[in-house]
C-alpha cells in the first residue's frame, strides 16, 4: 500500500518561500489505479516527485508498504512527461529498457526475456536496435512505458505521460495502460491535467486544489472494468463523473489562496 500522509512541500529560494503543497493525505491500495487531477500549476509534479523519492518533503511522509520513502525506492518505476528527454539518446531502445535491469542485477537470460516481452507488450517489436530519437513521440513514450513495465515494479508512477502526444496516439496509449494494468496487477498512480483521461483510466480520481495544494475531492469511478474509447466516453455515468470533476476543478480555481509567503 502507498500512503501519503500530511505531505507538505515548501520551496525556498533566497528571497521568498513558495508553499507548493500544503497538506495532502491519501492512500493507494495494492493493485489500484488512481488518477490525480488538478488545475494547472497545482503541484501535481511536485507530489509525484515526492512520492518517487526524487524530492524530500518539507513535512509529512510517504510510505510504501510501511517503509518511509527517503530516496527512490526499489520496486517503483516512473514514466515522465518529457518522453524525449527521459530516454537516453545515446543508447538503443533495447539498452534503454535493459539498463535499469542491469542495475538491479537481474541475470542476463531473464533480462533478455523481460526486455523483449515488455517491448512486445507495448507494440514495439523490431525497433530494439533503433535509437529513441528515430521514433515518433508516441513510440518514444511506449519505450518509456516498456522500460517501466520490464522493471517489474509493484508501483508505477506516471507523470502526465501523454500530455505531449497527439490525440489519436493518446487514446491508444490510454488503452495500453489499462490493458497492462489489468494484466500485471501493478499499482498505478497516474497524474494528469486532463479530466476525461482521469475518469476514463482510473478506479478512483483525486481532485487537487490550486496551490498550496490539498485534496479537494475524491470520487470512485463506478464504471465497468472493461472500457473502450467509444462506448465508455459516451456513457451517461462517464459524463456525470466528468461533470463533477470539472465542477470541483473550477471551484478549486475560484478559491485561490495566495501562493507566496514573504519571509
Amino acid at each position: 500500500m502507498l500512503e501519503v500522509s500530511g505531505l507538505r512541500k515548501v520551496y525556498r529560494s533566497q528571497r521568498r518561500e513558495v508553499e507548493a503543497i500544503r497538506d495532502l493525505t491519501f492512500t493507494v491500495d495494492d493493485g489500484e489505479l488512481v488518477c490525480v487531477v488538478g488545475p494547472s500549476g497545482c503541484g501535481k509534479t511536485t507530489l509525484l516527485r515526492c512520492v518517487a523519492g526524487l524530492l524530500g518533503p518539507t513535512g509529512g511522509a510517504v510510505r510504501l508498504a510501511g517503509n518511509a520513502v527517503t530516496g527512490p525506492p526499489p520496486g517503483m518505476a516512473v514514466v515522465f512527461q518529457e518522453y524525449g528527454r527521459s530516454l537516453f539518446p545515446w543508447l538503443s531502445v533495447h539498452d534503454n529498457v535493459d539498463l535499469p535491469l542491469r542495475q538491479k542485477r537481474v541475470p542476463r537470460p531473464r533480462r533478455a526475456a523481460l526486455v523483449s516481452e515488455a517491448l512486445t507488450a507495448v507494440g514495439l517489436d523490431g525497433t530494439q536496435q533503433s535509437n529513441p530519437w528515430q521514433l515518433s513521440g508516441g513510440m518514444q513514450q511506449r519505450v518509456a512505458i516498456a522500460r517501466a513495465v520490464a522493471y517489474e515494479p509493484s508501483v508505477l508512477l506516471m507523470d502526465e505521460p501523454f500530455a505531449a502526444v497527439d490525440a489519436q496516439t493518446r487514446a491508444e496509449l490510454e488503452d495500453l495502460v489499462r490493458a497492462l494494468w489489468q494484466r500485471l496487477g501493478v499499482t498505478i498512480l497516474f497524474v494528469t491535467h486532463d479530466i476525461d483521461e482521469a475518469v476514463y483510466l482510473g478506479q478512483r480520481v483525486l481532485v487537487l486544489s490550486a496551490s498550496p495544494t490539498v485534496v479537494q475531492d475524491e470520487l470512485l469511478v463506478d464504471l465497468p472494468a472493461a472500457r473502450d474509447q467509444l462506448h465508455t466516453r459516451a456513457d451517461a455515468r462517464f459524463t456525470a463523473l466528468r461533470a463533477r470533476v470539472y465542477e470541483q476543478i473550477q471551484a478549486a480555481k475560484g478559491a485561490q489562496p495566495n501562493t507566496a509567503i514573504s519571509s
Binding site: 518505476a77 515522465f80 539498463l99 542495475q103
Partner: peptide, 22 residues
Amino acid sequence: DAALSDTSRAYGITGFARLRYL
C-alpha cells in the same frame, strides 16, 4: 538533462553506472 538525471535516480542508476551511462 534534468529529466534524464531524474530518470536515472528513479531507476537506481547510481555510482559508476551513473558516470558511465549518464
